[in-house]
Write a protein that binds this DNA or RNA. Structure first.
Length: 559
DNA sequence: GTTGAGCGTT
């Protein structure tokens, strides 16, 4: 058995953690020794830079497929902004309970803003908190104890237990409201052990998360000279950028995703000069009529979200290949569950299955090698998997653990729950309608080694990339879906904190293997700092756009 | 006094 040397911080004395037979290290194993950690990083001998370890499905992958973990001493990654005080007595009650430093809203880009007016203009838009529902409370939990628990995250403005009017008995759920959005995000991103029970915290359905502001903007009139770093650097002036996506080959536009949807919104309609080029920012959301998503059949919103998440992201990203089965470990994912034929092997009119994106099926036009009229909708859905080198970077992997699993893997079952690679996505409102076992999170490990090897699938990676992108873009518009579709919920989450993932990091067109270290991303949380640049992604997707001129791209094809 | 998916008598 291999052991991985891990220390809490660089330079600390390492502890040897046992790796699994497949060479991966379970996050649960890591967390058993380093509560609250969500990933690993190490210092690369050559570059001297700190590298993240790829994290996926509750597992950490060695940086090198051949030599495994090597002789590196890895050190822990903790969710951003959260410090774990392991010596705290509070840890005894909840090992995963983060002890927050004073909330400070620091943005890297604020420090060196050359344009303070832009700054003040944008940052005015404060994200507001909303009541959060806390499910699964112990009967004995009182409003006081509820408040006490959540105060470790920040100021609690309200803590309420819903009770039976007559008996006064708790109904087992309640509501909390925080004074800061940061606290809210952290709470949503974690699981919570309150009075001995693992509880879910979500944005309540009653909030009707139907009008989320998109985090992503369309940046038109780009030149090839403007790369993702340029975009990121430029737009970071206005708020944290969680993702930049430049379709390849060059299409004269790109997408920038912000953590704060209000920032994104505030930029829409404006012209900006980047590297001497006047680019135009507009809404990346699809047209209204393109939102008709044939809900009845589309089981894959969820997945589609994976890349809409952000990232995220939380941000989103996630698996759940719709109704396809999840086969632990073997990466043999049935991309085409049931009638999900949209992507298949066929090379023409693939969208006839009718899922998805309503009328806007033909994104990318003639994609790559002769796949024509491929409307692969579901693809987005099916994509969910990451083993094809799609980094998750979901950050903040408190999810994955404690995920109740009802064993219903094949069909609708766990896709409504799992999201094992995400930060408590259900808590973020994504899966509120899903069923769950009564096992309230006793299962500390990722019960599913879900994986899907895109490369093994009978589909054109270009289509996959296109589909992913499509989904990502659609992401922001999936709000009004039936809850069962989860898209809305996901976006709710995305709009709130954005895991920073959108459609980035897909590499669909490339051939990166499951353990490709390039995709590493043990991320820290929510802020999406793991959102890899997208420049290298997508391989040959987006080729031969039917509209011809690059300067007259019909955006609708992508939205 | 039991119970364990859900969505708030404001």
């Amino acid at each position: 058995m291999d052991f991985v040397q891990v220390s809490e911080e660089e330079g600390d004395e390492p502890i040897e953690l046992p790796a699994e037979e497949d060479g991966t290290l379970l996050i649960s194993t890591l967390q058993a020794q380093f509560p609250g950690s969500c990933g690993l990083k190490y210092r690369n001998m050559d570059s001297k830079a700190v590298r993240g370890v790829r994290s996926n499905e509750g597992r950490l992958f060695p940086p090198n497929v051949d030599s495994g973990w090597g002789e590196y001493v890895y050190f822990c990654v903790f969710p951003k902004g959260i410090e774990i005080n392991r010596s705290s007595a509070e840890q005894l009650d909840s090992p995963y309970r983060p002890i927050l430093p004073p909330i400070e809203n620091k943005r890297k880009s604020d420090d060196n803003l050359e344009n303070s007016t832009a700054k003040t203009k944008r940052i005015e838009t404060r994200l507001r908190c909303t009541d959060l529902i806390v499910l699964g409370l112990a009967w004995k939990t009182t409003e006081d104890s509820l408040r006490e628990y959540f105060e470790s995250y920040g100021e609690v403005l309200m803590a309420q237990i819903k009770k039976d009017v007559k008996s006064g008995q708790s109904k087992g759920f309640g509501f909390v409201r925080f004074g800061s959005y940061e606290a809210q995000m952290r709470v949503l991103a974690n699981r919570h052990l309150i009075d001995g029970r693992w509880c879910e915290v979500k944005v309540p359905n009653s909030k009707g998360m139907g009008h989320q502001v998109p985090c992503k903007v369309f940046v038109g009139r780009c030149t090839e000279d403007i790369n993702s770093d340029d975009l990121r650097e430029y737009f970071s002036k206005f708020g944290e950028v969680t993702d930049v996506f430049i379709p390849r080959p060059f299409r004269a536009f790109s997408f920038v995703t912000f953590l704060d949807p209000d920032v994104a919104q505030s930029l829409c309609g404006e012209d900006h000069i980047i590297k001497g080029v006047s680019v135009h920012v507009s809404n990346a959301a699809p047209k209204a009529e393109q939102n008709r998503t044939h809900q009845g059949q589309n089981y894959n919103y969820n997945s589609g979200n994976n890349f809409g998440m952000h990232s995220y992201h939380p941000q989103g990203n996630h698996m759940n290949s719709g109704r396809s089965g999840h086969h632990r470990g073997n990466n043999q994912h049935n991309l085409h569950g049931g009638d999900n034929t949209a992507i298949g092997n066929s090379h023409s009119n693939m969208g006839s299955g009718g899922y998805g994106m309503g009328s806007n099926n033909n994104y990318g036009g003639n994609l790559g090698g002769g796949y024509t009229n491929s409307s692969n909708h579901n693809s987005g859905g099916n994509m969910n998997r990451q083993d094809a080198g799609i980094p998750y970077n979901r950050q903040n992997n408190f999810h994955g653990m404690n995920q109740p699993h009802n064993g219903n893997v094949g069909n609708s079952g766990w896709m409504n729950r799992g999201h094992l690679d995400m930060p408590n996505l259900q808590a973020l409102g994504i899966n509120s309608q899903g069923s769950s076992s009564s096992n309230q999170g006793q299962n500390m490990n990722n019960p599913l080694g879900v994986g899907l090897n895109l490369n093994s699938l009978p589909m054109n990676p270009a289509l996959v990339a296109a589909a992913l992108n499509q989904w990502s873009l659609l992401g922001n518009q999936l709000q009004n879906q039936n809850q069962d579709q989860q898209g809305g919920n996901f976006l709710s989450w995305m709009a709130q904190n954005n895991g920073g993932h959108s459609n980035s990091n897909m590499n669909s067109g490339s051939r990166k293997g499951p353990n490709n270290p390039n995709n590493s991303g043990s991320g820290s949380m929510i802020k999406g700092d793991n959102s890899a640049s997208n420049d290298q992604q997508n391989g040959n997707s987006w080729s031969n756009q039917s509209s011809g001129s690059q300067n007259s791209v019909d955006k609708s094809n992508f939205l």
